[in-house]
Design a protein around this nucleic acid. Structure first.
Lengths: 416, 416
DNA sequence: ACGAGGGGCATCAGTGACTGAGATCCGGCA
DNA sequence: TGCCGGATCTCAGTCACTGATGCCCCTCGT
């Protein structure tokens, strides 16, 4: 109800911007083709003239971002020279700062992991932890054997909420000491790398666009199944961050009218009825899992959740029922998001996804389809992410690649 | 779970596209300034050089889209010539095809209504209705006295779901005979005007960006309070349509765990617990409104709803309680959307909004703020639309203006 | 009243990205 | 070996934006 901010008119564009943008467009086309593309094919795909493609290809070759990879001659005529991404053309470092564990990766231009490591999240003073992170990054880069000058930057994925301007997390429930610590600045200084900070779920969505193959194109919602459940949103190949970078907060969507009371005052929110911690607790109460540990932290929950999945895999009907129920509830939340945004695909991923996948993939697509408001117009694909468990850290690194090399509309616009 | 469609790579851009885009950028800057802008101011705002601004201004002046409107001299030096939108530079016709009533407007370039009319929606054969609509449009244009050559096109707002490719509605609950009728083609032919079809809630959001002033800038959700409740989404000044144009379906967000059973199988969906029809029924059951008419249609519901508001305005506590409850429930749905998208503003509007506004504006902002996941980072403004009751039809006309003159990123891209 | 000063705006090249036409290159095939 | 067809390159040509320069017009001081 406060006064409306002065609108910031969309700024114009000019020749250099246009050139840079077209370069990223071509790079993206090459990136998205598994086998590489020739110049003529590129011309057809991106709609620019062959000459322009040649010119831009030359720039990309000069920058070592692509390489000529053999010829492909079918029939008469000069064979096409295939252009392919040069994996070693650029690298990025990604860090996922999770309340339980910090994951590190070095990614090449293809989005493949060159090297990774992890450490338990120290509980101490953030300043000290940042020093450790910087040191760990130094070691990782050294071990990876990557030319330091080829490292484009550092991406950091953190749990929300975040303040994009500050490059900090704001009152994160499980990292209380990190409130408003300026992580971006601190790590820029500590590592000498240009640093980007973003939410873990957003990073995961970016990972999917960069390293996820076909499932990372177009418009989709990335359901991040971690200690919490959040989503990353990609519309028309561009990630949606929201005004402050906090898009994707779906923890308080009501999915179970009979569910437990949530701190928000409602019953059966996602956050209080289907995140892994709750599912594990439910299994304990139902006697499917023995013991009952209150306040288990991240890795422990994951362990217990794996136990639950083991039982289900072994045919324990109660365990199966619990997982199926959680799939049903999650599907309701997903339905809300997909109906609101009318995306073409839902991609599931995150550290807990691997184990729950079979149970979810069996139920969720049908439930989503049933509740799909655009059911009569288009299908809604449901797929598991191809990126794997480290999607947070990989996504963090992809933030850097995306920022430098993705054809974002923003890139065209003049700034400041 | 079907196979993933071949991605459509983002296409490149070229010089002419760039020029056109910059033209729309400048037009938007002028449009958004209430008092007009001089060339120098424009240069500063859009970031282009004064020369470029001059060149583009000339093109805009030639096209009669803007006019030089006096000088503004403060201090020494040549006074600035103010450039302002020429309201008569372009017109658009909008039709809102609602199950109960069809609204027609002719809009000028400023988004002001030049002329409007309405008729009860005939129940007959769609083909016949389309003929009536075309005739009504002809009359309206004639009465408006607008130069027919200045009419850029026709926009049609329809209730969802829609098929954007076909330009049709698909199994609309209250317009059953219109299923998959190709409205766009039919009206293009019947009127000779280029026609665009879109969802009413999306149109309303576009109306806000075009005719809503400051509240139509940036990122916001337009809550359309009509026979049903839906939302239009605008992110970074661009409307979000979704894969098939069906974004904004929020009817099955659960807002009341104790609410009535919905046809989707859940309890307390928006659709079954807080749309006006339900609120009226509730008031009837509670004895606040006398009588009890099952299956009341559009206009009747609006009448009854107005009665309810009259009682509340007069101090009837039961009536007030009913309205407040509906505000609370709607706020929960809005929270889900705003937390998912992290927008900066919620704009309420639609035919029912005017009467409910005071009750909603009193409660909703507080409730939203309490549930705002980014509460610590930024405020969430809540405002009533400045566009008024005919926002559907006005939005329909704005679809045309937006399509031709808004600086959409899409405009830069080469096509097929 | 008049001239100086200053800001707004137009004119004129200049730059650079895309385009089109033609040349060149590179195999396969007769 | 020579011809053919397709891919790519070379070379101008076009056009939008930029920078430099100068004219225009108004206010202010004398």
């Amino acid at each position: 109800m406060t006064e409306i901010r002065q609108p910031t008119p969309r700024r114009g564009t000019n020749l250099p911007r246009m050139g840079d943008f077209n370069l990223t467009v071509i790079l993206e086309a090459i990136r998205r083709s598994t086998l590489g593309l020739s110049r003529v094919e590129l011309a057809q795909i991106v709609g620019l003239s062959p000459q322009t493609i040649s010119n831009i290809s030359r720039r990309l070759l000069d920058q070592k971002l692509i390489v000529e990879a053999g010829k492909e001659g079918s029939g008469p005529g000069k064979p096409r020279t295939i252009l392919r991404l040069n994996p070693a053309g650029m690298y990025a470092v990604g860090v996922h700062l999770d309340p339980a564990v910090i994951t590190f990766v070095v990614l090449d231009l293809l989005g493949d992991v060159v090297r990774h490591s992890r450490m338990a999240t120290p509980g101490g003073d953030p300043a000290g932890v940042i020093t450790s992170i910087a040191e760990q990054i130094r070691v990782l880069i050294e071990e990876s054997g990557v030319d330091a000058s080829k490292i484009a930057g550092l991406g950091v994925a953190v749990p929300g909420p975040i303040d994009l301007d500050e490059g900090s997390v704001v009152e994160p429930p499980l990292l209380t000491r990190w409130n408003r610590v300026r992580i971006r600045e601190a790590l820029t200084e500590a590592t000498g790398l240009e640093t980007l900070v973003d939410k873990d779920v957003t990073s995961a969505a970016v990972a999917e666009t960069w390293a996820g193959g076909a499932s990372g194109a177009g418009s989709f919602v990335f359901m991040y199944m971690g200690t919490g459940i959040g989503c990353g949103i990609v519309l028309n190949d561009e990630v949606v961050r929201g005004t402050s970078g906090n898009a994707g907060e779906i923890g308080h969507i009501v999915v179970d009218p009979d569910g437990p009371l949530c701190d928000c005052g409602q019953r059966g929110c996602v956050k209080s009825s289907c995140i892994p911690q709750v599912v594990v607790a439910e299994a304990e109460t139902a006697g499917v899992l023995d013991g009952h540990r209150e306040g288990a932290d991240g890795p422990e929950v994951q362990e217990r959740f794996a136990e639950l999945c083991d039982k289900a895999d072994a045919g324990d009907e109660k365990a199966i029922a619990i997982l199926e129920k959680s799939a049903t509830l999650v599907a309701r939340a997903v339905s809300v998001v997909t109906n609101t945004l009318d995306v073409e695909r839902v991609v599931f991923g995150g550290p807990f996804w691997g184990r729950m996948a079979p149970y979810f993939l069996e139920r969720v697509p049908g439930l989503l389809d049933r509740n799909n408001a655009a059911r009569m117009i288009h299908d809604l694909d449901v797929v598991g992410s191809g990126v794997g468990e480290d999607v947070g850290a990989i996504g963090a690194a992809c933030l850097v690649l995306e920022h430098m090399l993705a054809p974002r509309a923003q890139r065209l616009l003049l700034e400041g």
